[in-house]
Design a protein around this nucleic acid. Structure first.
Lengths: 191, 191
DNA sequence: TTATTACGATACGATGCTGTTTCGTAACTT
DNA sequence: AAGTTACGAAACAGCATCGTATCGTAATAA
């Protein structure tokens, strides 16, 4: 905003420091969680002065929101010509992200702050879930055209249900099978 | 343990204080979350000295684990003679507990500490989910006997899926319908 | 009654983080 | 070159909480 919409005189803000701050914030979020991470720890890990962070962000919330938003992951839209294979790829991809420490802490942060601060859920929805929900829809669409499933299938609701079981299995990992097999088995109930 | 298995001389620990501590801990957990609650705040709200808490618990984790464990909720096993009605009651009951501030913070705590400390998930599973999973199984069992559903339905997997969608809808509340309708609609995909 | 343990209150030093300020230096614009 | 802004480092007072220790009092057992 203020950085780009107007040429400022004086030394410009360091893009390198900016990247280092976001990186350190995400690392610490995954390691210790939102509540236990301090601005001081972030500045030390990023190798920048505390001042530099306080100059950019008014609060930890703002910083972390920006950091999460900065994650750009390519959305996979599998197209193997077969629904089951497509779904397997989607599940595999979701597993990698969701089961990581950062993924877990992000979800925890969203839940615990949901009542007071909806911005984290908002970002996660827009940046992460929404694109994948659409990718899922196009996978389902193709399966419909191949007559693999009925035309009245509600891809949105199925995606939500699938996300739900993934979340559940994240907290209470299945004991007798792998996370992915379990999710796959649940998904077969839905289709 | 040490309190009951042996008659001690001297003044016994106050059961009243004990109750007050657990109550205050649960209240604060719902209000500010696990990370933001201090032993000091608990002692003040409970109207006891800090010493009294430190004498009983070595850590906040221990205290909160005990507090959660102390919640005794009657498990509803509906038997209306009709599966859909039975399920509605189960959903309604789950909604009340899950959507409360305490319910949300408990879940958030479980997730964020899952990697380092599995005891919270363990307690929640044993004290809360397990009994309900069994109640759900008997509801399904009765529906099978009435030939409302097929005999090969896996009640456990369906319960997990249902819990999953509830959890998901807790974080990302449906915009165009109520929480319960949404859950009910998802459940119909499964049965 | 005496011995023992718990009680609530209060004070304590230690710790870790907050957000701000000051400093000399570095990187730009005009 | 002059002017301006950002940089990292360091110091700062302020605050909340930690876990422990000390106090005189209360409640129980022998």
């Amino acid at each position: 905003m203020s950085k780009t919409n107007q040429k400022m005189s004086g030394r410009p803000r360091s893009a390198k420091s900016h990247q280092a701050i976001l990186k350190a914030a995400l690392e610490l979020l995954g390691e210790v969680g939102f509540e236990n991470m301090s601005i001081e720890a972030i500045s030390i890990r990023a190798g920048v002065g505390k001042t530099t962070i306080y100059r950019r962000y008014k609060s930890k919330e703002e910083l972390v929101a920006d950091a999460i938003e900065s994650i750009r992951q390519d959305v996979v839209i599998p197209d193997t010509g077969n629904l089951d294979n497509d779904l397997d790829e989607l599940i595999e991809n979701a597993a990698q992200i969701t089961l990581s420490p950062l993924g877990k802490q992000t979800v925890a942060m969203i839940i615990s702050s949901a009542a007071s601060n909806y911005q984290f859920a908002q970002i996660y929805w827009t940046k992460y879930l929404q694109p994948r929900r659409e990718a899922f829809a196009s996978v389902i669409e193709r399966a419909k055209m191949r007559n693999e499933i009925q035309a009245d299938v509600d891809s949105g609701l199925i995606f939500d249900s699938m996300s739900g079981i993934m979340l559940y299995a994240l907290i209470f990992p299945p004991e007798t099978e792998s996370w992915t097999t379990y999710v796959r088995r649940a998904l077969h109930l839905l289709l």
